[in-house]
């Protein structure tokens, strides 16, 4: 992969993926690998968006349902479902997505601010939108996505269910 050539001074390589109908992208440099769903151990009482934990070559990966995180409903597991493994603050985190799409090279100035009519959670977690091929791709802000404060606000619905 010609990653190095693709990233110019103001360029950005995005790994794009689908959540339902919507396409999103995240800085490809953060994505370490893409794996199949595998054996996920559920964690009871965990925040709603945490699917569970998974063994990745001896490391424990927290798997997050990105669709739930962005309040787009729950991910449906299909043969196309994948987990994007990312290293964030030296801790592996997996994002469960419906399917992985192509990588997009874009320039920073081509990323437009999120449309103002976008809902709270999504607009908070988006750096902006850019055009990728024939569709619009939401560029995710990893910092916001992983912030614990934000996560804490999302009430553990799991507990509610079990009560």
């Amino acid at each position: 992969m010609n990653v190095d050539q693709a990233i110019t001074a103001d360029g950005l390589l995005l790994a794009s993926f689908l959540l339902g109908e919507a396409a999103f992208g995240i800085d490809a440099q953060l994505v370490q690998e893409v794996v199949k769903i595998g054996d996920i151990t559920p964690v009871h009482h965990a925040p709603h968006h945490v699917v569970g934990i998974r063994n990745l070559r001896g490391r424990i990966v927290t798997v997050i349902d990105l669709a739930t995180r962005l309040e787009l409903g729950n991910a449906k597991i299909t043969p196309d479902s994948r987990i994007l493994i990312m290293e964030w603050k030296s801790e592996p985190i997996g994002f469960l997505v419906d399917s992985v799409a192509e990588t997009i090279t874009t320039r920073l100035e081509d990323i437009a601010p999120p449309p103002p009519n976008l809902g709270g959670v999504q607009s908070r977690n988006l750096r902006g939108v850019c055009r990728g091929g024939h569709r619009l791709v939401g560029v995710l802000d990893p910092e916001a996505l992983m912030s614990i404060d934000e996560l804490a606000n999302q009430k553990s619905t799991k507990e509610r269910e079990s009560l």
Binding site: V35, K36, I37, G38, D39, I40, T41, P42, V43, H44, V51, G52, D65, N74, A75, K76, I77, S81, L96, K158, E161, S162, L163
Partner: peptide
């Protein structure tokens, strides 16, 4: 109680590669 979507019956947890 209500079924938990992350119980072993949940497709996520049972899908294997």
């Amino acid at each position: 109680q209500l079924a938990d979507r992350r119980s072993p019956r949940h497709p996520v947890a049972n899908e294997t590669d």
